[in-house]
Amino acid sequence: MKEENNFLISKFVQNHSGIVLGSSKSYLIETRLTPIAEQFGFKDVDELAYGLGSAASDLKNAVIDAMTTNESFFFRDNIPFEAFEKIMLPELIATARKTNNKIRIWCAAASTGQEPYSLAMILLANKRLWSGINIEIIGTDLSDLSLERAKIGRYTQFEVQRGLPVQMLVEHFKQEGTAWFISDEIKNMVKFSKSNLLEPFGLLGKMDIVFCRNVLIYFDTETKAKVVKSVYDILRLDGYLVLGGAETLLGISDLMERAEGYRGLYRSAGAKNNLTALSA
């Protein structure tokens, strides 16, 4: 692939998704986009690069889709989910009982659904605790293909073994051949829709918890800061932002403060902080 086309495609992907590919990723671009080029009738990735600017939205979507990394697994890193069950949930339930009996949770880069479904499984196991409260889980992503898979809730034998305790597998999944389908009960607890973190998402309404994990890492500092500001705006004052295990807001934003005890957990600067119980 020609250097200038590498640049064209990187620029395109960054403008539309925030994802910074960098020049070292030309191999990645070529392997991931060759099938797309074929599918849309281009001779090769170079030809696709020329056509991209004026392309129809389905080609643009396919290119963005192919350049996203959608890896996810159930109960990824475990600790945020433990913090969700033991700290965030009881606290938000107490608040909800005093206010509007509502809790809203948003997975902002839900990929193939493992993250919101893990939360749903925790909620179902604690059903008694939140009786009378309306809990919403919303999963959004930029990738159409991932969202499609998330909605179907079909996972491979490998996927259901990464992070998911076997007891939950037996309880919440149905096996068909080598595929495992998540139960309707869990599926019905999560709503999926497409949303780009670079675009305004205020329409989603106020949130109590935002899981925005393993997506900021792909953005440059400026984009990270912009997204964090928008997430901050959508979060209720005593709400929580949960980042991936390797992500930090250090040097990116001081709107949110790290909650004690767990690396990826943030609250609005100034909100009370009672996480000392969790020593991770």
Partner: peptide
């Protein structure tokens, strides 16, 4: 716990860590 073969390093690690 229960691991279905074929397994890989990641699965074994994730099951044993938990």
């Amino acid at each position: 716990e229960y691991i279905m073969k074929p397994f890989d390093r990641e699965i074994l690690e994730s099951k044993f860590e938990r």
